[in-house]
Design a protein around this nucleic acid. Sequence first.
DNA 1: GGCAGTGGTTGAACCGATTCAACCGCAGGC
DNA 2: GCCTGCGGTTGAATCGGTTCAACCACTGCC
Lengths: 354, 354
Amino acid sequence: MVRDNGGGRPAVAQRSSMADVAALAGVSKGTVSHVLNHPERVSPATRERVEAAIEKLRFVPHGTARSLAIGSMPALGVVLSDISNSLFVDLLEGVERAAQERGAYVLIANSYTDLRRERRYMEMFESVRTLGNLVTINSQHHYANLVRDRDRDGHQPLVFLNYRGEDDRFCFVHADNRAGGAMVARHLVETGRRNIAVVTTPWHLQPIEERLAGFEEAIAGTGARIVSRESCEQIHRADGWRVGRALLPRIRSGEVDAVFAVADLVAAGIAQALADDPGIRIPEDVAIVGYDDNQAAWDSPLPITTVRQPGEGMGATGVQLVYEELNDPTHEHRVVRLGPELVVRASSVPRAAA
Amino acid sequence: MVRDNGGGRPAVAQRSSMADVAALAGVSKGTVSHVLNHPERVSPATRERVEAAIEKLRFVPHGTARSLAIGSMPALGVVLSDISNSLFVDLLEGVERAAQERGAYVLIANSYTDLRRERRYMEMFESVRTLGNLVTINSQHHYANLVRDRDRDGHQPLVFLNYRGEDDRFCFVHADNRAGGAMVARHLVETGRRNIAVVTTPWHLQPIEERLAGFEEAIAGTGARIVSRESCEQIHRADGWRVGRALLPRIRSGEVDAVFAVADLVAAGIAQALADDPGIRIPEDVAIVGYDDNQAAWDSPLPITTVRQPGEGMGATGVQLVYEELNDPTHEHRVVRLGPELVVRASSVPRAAA
DNA sequence: GGCAGTGGTTGAACCGATTCAACCGCAGGC
DNA sequence: GCCTGCGGTTGAATCGGTTCAACCACTGCC
């Protein structure tokens, strides 16, 4: 059944359907379907005939029709708030790996932290019946909206990533930012730092506040202390550079012997500013530590100590939770917290001691 | 018709279908469909009744079923080779905007330049019958493979992005890298540079070779010349930094008065290395120019002159070509070349002259 | 009063797969 | 020779929409 599509277009062979295959092989549609999905139920002779027909007609099953019959499509939806953020790229990698292991595709949507897009894509994923969906959240406000929509028409499992909420209808996977902050504190204290400058952002983001809280907690009673708090407007290298310049005198005077910046780009900017000063040696005179382990941390003339986020882990765990909710009737929604990892580089430890 | 799903799970209200809505509103399925798709064909009274029923049952149409009936799903597939590359992020933005204008969703797949993934996702997009697909290509080899697969079972429009191929079955959209290189050459010459060092990569990438070719062509006969060719192992800031250090003496001596690096990260690294030397003033003694206009170029203590790629333009044009192929029977496949744009920043022009 | 025209609505066919109860032919057991 | 059991196959129902020919009631016109 190769229909003519008429008109002057270059003739495109119409796709053949299961019915075509069945006709050519002289069997029923049901048998063709069995060859594809339960080959063991079909006798070798028929199977061969059907397979030959499939090959000959270049038959590729119609995914949409299959999904309709099955009731869902073998794919997971992921809504990322910012695809240019390396944490989310890592996270995506985790999702893809875990999904692939389970034979599912991953549909990615990028929302640019635009709530309208987030909702639009969630709606779409719901509407094409993905197996389940994963959403990265970085604002209370977005979270509240998505949950509200969900009350309207949500049915697939939904897991929130990089966010810790409290709602027993969902699972959450988030990084333990508090522990990450504490790791930095311990590392600095253990390597003999006592007077630490902390560099943060002016806006209040859950993850960043937690890093600082963990840091302060862990530093308490160790003899080390925070001697300065700087903040930069944006998480950009140039901001870090300006902060670095501002800190120069106090570092030269020995008043500050370590800097903890809550983001790598900022830390890299600081390192760049300090490196310009011939009177300062890093890490002998001052240690610099960032957070996130993105390219700015390792790709720097002076590689920077940082905390690696459990990006892939969050992605993979999210997928696991979706499948658990899907298959395990006793599944209880829960909050999974994953530990980050300290990556020590030249910016905080004299090479010999590294 | 709210079916009980039995078992001990927290009762999840089953989704209602069009039949449920029709029953509640006392009309036929066809009418409900009309309310959704051709409201003008339905009398106001009926429409209101149906809409009330939809609201009451929280009916959301089943996208998969709709796609099956329509024959395609209202979405475009995009396979990106590297989602962490800012060019592709821009490109994606262009795709999303153009798609949204036309009421289509965008499904993104990230291949990590892994050919297997590229093929897997293309297969999936074919199988769910997207309206058309866009693929970024950065190697002849991948291109050849995708085209071969396509011979097997391709039917939707397919447009290649960031690649210039020759095949009258497809459209191609690519950036005019030759023109970009020429822009840099003209800019340097016009601002009085004569002795230029060029920094490139060891591998042979179509776009990069073209940038250089364009540069050399435009510089010929202007009195300026290439006095040095450096190459770095990777497109990383640290590589640029090393190259910058190596160039220091020749810059100090005035032997080199401009550096053109084929990527911003490298240019930023070079700038960083030169800034460390108190004897060198940028841009008075030496101009630095990069390529791509990604974050490294603008987010630097000394913002760097660069060439902005037509990322969004490529994405938007790709979408336009897909729709053209879809709707216009006279559509001829073609190659679209988009011009880049010179962005002049402090690294190449004294502030006063900028 | 009969007829054409029209806006609104219906019901069945269709999209392309999956699934399952029913069926068929055949071997084995008694 | 009859019955049972079983592997293999079939055909119809189903998923949830869209679409279109047919139909209906009603108006306007001759």
